[in-house]
């Protein structure tokens, strides 16, 4: 049984299709990245999974249950929306204690202190949340989401509005949770670099449909043809002219002294190097390069915007 299952999910608002026949699964313990442009339907998908919205057609299950109709199952799931679910006038500890009561957490005082220490807010436990920075609120929001040790946690844009330091902290925290508590993490994000670093599986949603769904490894390795980046000791532009016409080079570009070639066949890499050396170029470094998740994302979203 998967932690999250979505099959043939469709939903429209006021006659506008937001989700069309969306299907994917998330395995237990995975960190799953759900990507898509603004308005693609990512939050709508999360809301349907959490039982806040009903699907028009299709079926969703979290831990094999329908959260809309199952209070007990909701106790096994954590969620962080953009607003963190916190009350500014209450203290950090007060906010967590309230949710501990709602989720019937055992030994709430101990758990609250443990989590405040985990997110680095132990010294601010009695301060009103309204005095916290955006990053501190987000950290507390994550602590709140995992307070009851959920098996699956849904994080909706956990890094939005955070500075790079806080983004890194959130990223490390997610990895730590996945590893230490064996939580399944459903990460809804725009932050492609973050997703590429921490997610094991990714789905790209655009135009209401899933455009790609695979492990990050497979997506970045299998998409397109093999590419190689060659760092030259000068004359990059001339190198491109030299190798651009070779039959096994399908694409060639230059960035300063770095030559980037896409090849028809990975076995052609030694031939490319030999051709460059033979033409008198001095090579400093050769690196086999895969495409970034960002390139894959832009390709899929661009294709979706161009047509169905």
């Amino acid at each position: 049984m998967n932690a999250v299952e979505v099959r043939g999910l469709s939903r429209s608002f006021d006659g506008r299709d937001i989700l069309r026949d969306v299907s994917f699964t998330v395995g237990h313990g995975e960190i799953f990245g759900y990507l898509g442009p603004n308005g693609a339907g990512k939050t709508t998908t999360i809301r349907i999974l959490l039982g806040l919205l009903a699907p028009d057609t299709g079926e969703v299950r979290v831990l094999g249950r329908d959260l809309a109709a199952d209070d007990d199952a909701r106790a096994r799931v954590g969620v962080l929306f953009e607003n963190n679910g916190l009350v500014d006038r209450m203290s950090a500890a007060g906010n967590l204690t309230y949710y501990a009561g709602l989720y019937s957490v055992d030994d709430p005082a101990e758990r609250v202190d443990e989590l405040l220490a985990l997110v680095g807010l132990a010294d601010r436990r009695d301060d009103p949340v309204g005095t916290f920075s955006t990053g501190m609120k987000r950290k507390l929001g994550i602590a709140r989401a995992i307070l009851h040790r959920p098996e699956v946690v849904f994080l909706d844009e956990p890094s939005s509005g955070l500075d790079p330091g806080a983004q890194r902290m959130v990223r490390d925290l997610i990895l730590e949770l996945s590893r230490r508590e064996e939580m399944t993490v459903f990460l809804n994000s725009h932050h492609l670099d973050e997703v590429q670093r921490i997610c094991s599986t990714v789905a790209i949603l655009a135009g209401g449909r899933i455009r790609a769904f695979d492990s990050v490894e497979n997506l970045t390795a299998a998409s397109g043809r093999p590419a190689v980046t060659v760092a030259l000791a000068g004359a990059g532009a001339r190198a491109c002219e030299t190798v651009g016409g070779l039959p096994y080079v399908t694409e060639c570009g230059v960035d300063g002294d770095r030559l980037r070639c896409t090849l028809a066949d990975p076995a052609a890499i030694p031939d490319l190097i030999a051709a460059l050396v033979g033409a008198g170029f001095r090579i400093e470094e050769v690196r086999r390069s895969s495409r970034s998740l960002e390139e894959i994302y832009i390709e899929h979203v661009g294709r979706a915007e161009g047509g169905p």
Binding site: L52, F81, L102
Partner: peptide
């Protein structure tokens, strides 16, 4: 107004 009701609706409370 602040949207925190959405988080509450996900709690195991009817």
């Amino acid at each position: 107004r602040d949207g925190s009701i959405e988080t509450l609706l996900c709690a195991p409370v009817s």
